[in-house]
Deep mutational scan, measured.
Amino acid sequence: WIARINAAVRAYGLNYSTFINGLKKAGIELDRKILADMAVRDPQAFEQVVNKVKEALQV
C-alpha cells in the first residue's frame, strides 16, 4: 500500500511521509489500504484528497 500511495502522490509533487503528515494536519482519517485503492480506482477523488493535504501543508 505504501508503494502505491508513494507513486501516486509523487505525481502531485509530494512524497509519502509528507502526504501522511498532511493527512493528519488536514484531519483526514482514511487508512492506507483505502488510500491505495482510491489512487488506482478513483483518481479524481484521490486528487481531491491530495489537494486538501496540500492546503493543510500550505504547499
Rank of each mutant, 00 (worst) to 15 (best):
W1G: 15
W1K: 15
W1C: 15
W1L: 15
I2Q: 04
I2G: 01
A3L: 04
A3C: 15
R4E: 15
R4H: 05
R4M: 15
I5P: 00
I5K: 00
I5E: 00
I5R: 00
N6T: 14
N6C: 14
N6S: 14
N6K: 14
N6E: 15
N6M: 03
A7C: 13
A7E: 15
A7R: 14
A7I: 09
A7Q: 11
A7P: 01
A8Y: 04
A8C: 04
V9T: 04
R10T: 13
R10D: 05
R10W: 05
R10N: 11
R10I: 05
A11E: 12
A11D: 12
A11V: 14
A11P: 15
Y12W: 08
Y12R: 05
Y12Q: 03
Y12P: 00
Y12A: 02
G13Y: 03
G13A: 05
G13C: 11
L14Q: 01
L14S: 01
L14R: 00
L14Y: 04
L14F: 06
L14P: 00
L14G: 01
N15R: 04
N15V: 09
Y16W: 02
Y16I: 02
Y16M: 01
Y16D: 02
Y16V: 04
S17K: 14
S17Y: 15
S17A: 08
S17W: 15
S17D: 12
S17C: 15
S17T: 06
S17V: 07
S17L: 13
S17P: 08
S17H: 10
T18F: 03
T18G: 10
T18D: 05
T18V: 09
T18I: 11
F19M: 03
F19V: 01
F19K: 00
F19G: 00
F19T: 00
F19Q: 00
I20W: 07
I20L: 06
I20K: 09
I20E: 09
I20H: 04
N21V: 13
N21L: 13
N21I: 12
N21R: 12
G22P: 01
L23I: 12
L23D: 00
L23A: 06
L23P: 00
K24L: 12
K24P: 05
K24H: 09
K25G: 08
K25F: 09
K25W: 08
K25I: 14
K25V: 12
K25T: 09
A26V: 07
A26L: 06
A26H: 03
A26Q: 06
A26N: 05
A26Y: 02
A26M: 05
G27D: 07
G27I: 06
G27Q: 10
G27A: 09
G27W: 06
E29G: 11
E29K: 14
E29T: 08
E29F: 15
E29D: 14
E29H: 13
E29Y: 15
L30W: 06
L30V: 07
D31T: 14
D31P: 12
D31C: 13
D31N: 12
R32E: 15
R32H: 13
R32F: 14
R32W: 10
R32G: 15
K33W: 09
K33M: 12
K33N: 04
K33D: 04
I34H: 09
L35M: 05
L35S: 02
L35A: 05
A36L: 11
A36S: 10
A36D: 02
A36C: 08
A36I: 09
D37V: 08
D37W: 09
D37R: 09
M38A: 03
M38R: 02
M38T: 04
M38P: 01
M38W: 06
A39R: 02
A39W: 05
A39N: 05
V40I: 11
V40L: 07
V40N: 10
R41H: 12
R41V: 12
R41S: 08
R41Y: 10
D42M: 11
D42R: 10
D42C: 08
D42A: 08
P43A: 08
P43S: 06
P43L: 09
Q44H: 13
A45F: 10
F46V: 01
F46N: 00
F46R: 00
F46T: 00
E47C: 08
E47G: 05
E47N: 05
E47Y: 05
Q48E: 12
Q48P: 02
Q48D: 07
Q48G: 10
Q48V: 08
Q48K: 11
V49E: 03
V49W: 03
V49Y: 07
V49P: 00
V49S: 02
V50E: 01
V50I: 12
V50Q: 01
N51F: 15
N51K: 12
N51I: 14
N51S: 09
N51Y: 14
K52R: 14
K52W: 08
V53D: 00
V53H: 00
V53P: 00
V53C: 13
K54I: 10
K54E: 04
K54P: 01
E55Q: 12
A56D: 04
A56S: 07
A56Y: 05
A56P: 02
A56M: 08
L57I: 13
L57H: 05
Q58W: 07
Q58I: 09
Q58E: 12
V59T: 13
